[in-house]
Design a protein around this nucleic acid. Sequence first.
DNA 1: GCCGATCATCGATACGTATCGACCACGCCG
DNA 2: CGGCGTGGTCGATACGTATCGATGATCGGC
Lengths: 336, 336
Amino acid sequence: MVTSRDVARVAGVAQSTVSYVLSGKRPTSEETRKKVEAAIGQLTYHPNAGARALASRRTRVIGLVIPFIRDLHMNSIMEFISVIATTARSHDYDILLVTEDEGADGIRRVVGQQICDGLILMQVEGEDARVPVVRDLKVPVVLIGIPQDPAGLVCIDADFEMAGRLCVHELSAAGHTRIAVLGWPAEVVKRPINYVNRFLAGVTRAARDCRVGLLELPGGTDRASVARSVRQGVDQTGPVPAFIAPDSGAQELVQQALFSQGLTPGVDVSVIGSTLAVVAERQLVPLTTIDLKPAAVSARAVEILCGLLEAAEYDVNEVLELIPPAIERRASVVGT
Amino acid sequence: MVTSRDVARVAGVAQSTVSYVLSGKRPTSEETRKKVEAAIGQLTYHPNAGARALASRRTRVIGLVIPFIRDLHMNSIMEFISVIATTARSHDYDILLVTEDEGADGIRRVVGQQICDGLILMQVEGEDARVPVVRDLKVPVVLIGIPQDPAGLVCIDADFEMAGRLCVHELSAAGHTRIAVLGWPAEVVKRPINYVNRFLAGVTRAARDCRVGLLELPGGTDRASVARSVRQGVDQTGPVPAFIAPDSGAQELVQQALFSQGLTPGVDVSVIGSTLAVVAERQLVPLTTIDLKPAAVSARAVEILCGLLEAAEYDVNEVLELIPPAIERRASVVGT
DNA sequence: GCCGATCATCGATACGTATCGACCACGCCG
DNA sequence: CGGCGTGGTCGATACGTATCGATGATCGGC
């Protein structure tokens, strides 16, 4: 194994000089720097992470607490993870996975053992068991998602309220005056997942502003219940029905239900959904969606955490940052 | 910060004794052990990972090299990652993510810096740029997937050859004598992804054994090309057509194409696919599938790697282990 | 031509754990 | 009863890096 002492010997300097060349925490002559860099290249030296962590009390590792696998949202989860890992690397941090099935102990463990310098929590819900644990942790933590009580926490999420407004404005602009909102399945609504309420609040507010009528319908994951809600929506929203169906798991089912009623999105019915672009484009009719910008949210979470980590003292200022979504117009909305 | 020295002081023993109680590498009296454990609990001591790694030259971390996001296989990727992380934890290892966009350097970096003790490579393809890099690494590496030349490597994968045979046997047993095989999209076939060839080899061999005719058709990711191949298959495989459609990305498209031809899987056409159970059950007709057991494959990869890590000397015996898949009968196969 | 200041470098030490050799107190066997 | 092995513990040291204080060299100002 090659150590900084070996590098120092080859370069003809002291070990501490090698360290200063690498960190730049003290001025170094051009000449010395070149000799050291040459030696590093020649020996293919890699600083030992354990020793570095021990001496500097920094690991340059971020713990990422990933949620259980519960449904088929998993493709978007993978996008989150991937972007987080890449962004972290661009700040010279690595990502350590912390699975939620270890529960609170897992979080306490990685922080206690000082395996990582900070944490990112994915998919934080309204009442999240992890929140009380991280609240009085002595390392910086960034939450993706907004818990019921975000006091003193650093949170980031998509702006679901704005997403709701965008949907209504788009349909209103297309001439619709009565809109059916196909909610989330009951098991999602029951756990207080904040974003559901925020989305609906945005929808409601925009509906009032635009003088548009709303019809809230229950969502579901199975064909039958989606079909039932769709039928109800078609009956009650006028000659050219309009749907907002934000649950990314139900996109196919909604379109199938409409087709079996003899309706074609973009022709005699309007639909706005929310899912990844690749999924939206694969639908029978390419779906107009709200892009919640998961990549931007995850990248920003990493940026914020890295900022806190570099700051000499992480004064835990409360942060609540919302990333504005954008509408992606495809072919599923029709003007009336 | 609480150190083992603090624990020792509280327990009234030497620091080394604390270490031995924790590792069990030397015998300890019942009494001492209790005192130490009490002190650990009282102080909530967590051994410092960096110091541990430095002294023991082991990090108890496994590097997981995850592939690019290229298609919508991502839900299965997430399943892999999740199972790998959980299984690793059950062996007291943590998982560090290594994204492939760092390329070969990323692998060399984590090994060089001794951030991890070993590696798992996901989604290894026939000609994989990572394989030459890991081949002469001095740490144990387990590949998920089989490269073109697996000599000297430790590989594990689903038994795609057997999967192919299972498909043919099932359809043959149902009375089909001519079977259409809907392949993978051209871009998948072009990169030599071994499992494609292995699957087709299994299909071919079983077809010969069962005296069944085969019709190989091009796959695709878009509606049009899938529809074209399906139409061709329907025309050329007899009164009750039979399809094998292993590409998990095309399951919906195949069913939709059949429906639009007026055919219902399980009634007047047979289809066998391969995808996650949750996806199979969501189809219009619940799909009979080959379960490639991704969870078993990933768990086994971790087990093997942990075995190599615990072994005093990792003599790099070549390993090639295939996990047998299973058929999951649902409703998409009809007897003739 | 001498003195303080600045720059570049060196030597020494600390970080917290694992592990080796040494040590003591037993008990067992001859 | 003496010596030998063994179970249980301690003290000391090594692991590789970061960082502090000290040292020597160089330079400008008077």
